[in-house]
Amino acid sequence: MTEHPGRITREDVAHVARLARLRLTDDELDLYTGQLGVILDHAADVASLDLDGVAPTAHAMAVTNVLRSDTPRPGLDRDEVLAAAPEVEQHRFRVPRILGEAP
């Protein structure tokens, strides 16, 4: 048996909400902490297994080398693309101030 991670805390939930760009009220924080705790308790049957000798499966079907030829294909009409955008300026997507550099 491998060790089972501790129960998810309110701080954990606040942290993942920040990572996922979600804002939660205090009530929501309490609610989700409880609900996620129940789900993760159920997942303890998986989390506590010793599976060191088992290979992970990321794809159900083992396919390799799916490749496309380097041939240009028509893209989208720019006006159609920009028409879907919440805000556009100079044919670009406009966003509010960016506070940090890209990582």
Partner: peptide, 21 residues
Amino acid sequence: ETKLFCGCRNLFGDEPNSNVC
């Protein structure tokens, strides 16, 4: 000639948002 995962042209000096899909 094209981008890594789509057939759009690998030319980014063009008019903004003109080589997109």
